[in-house]
Amino acid sequence: MSIAKTEVEKVARLARLEVEEKRAEKLVDELDSVLEYVGKLDELDTDDVEPTTHPVAAEHTGRDDEVNEGLTVEQVVGHAPDQQDGQFRVPKVVDE
């Protein structure tokens, strides 16, 4: 399967990554060769195979409903690139 440049651009937008024009060309080639390589999985018939999400299944029964964690406001916003009044400041968010 060959990937189109427009597709790479779409995916980059989805991943919120700015990709320079000249980098995009190279990226298309690199992804093409990787996708060609991973295409070898198609050799295998996996119709009746269950997917593995967790290699070793841990039993998870959850935790009790207890309040036992919490950072100070200073710890939360103290290292933010931009903050105001104990909140994170970002360029305008619309429709909220």
Binding site: V38, L41, T46, V49, T52
Partner: peptide
Amino acid sequence: EKAQKVRTLIR
């Protein structure tokens, strides 16, 4: 999902 299935075969 294909990869997750092959993962099962490898296991």
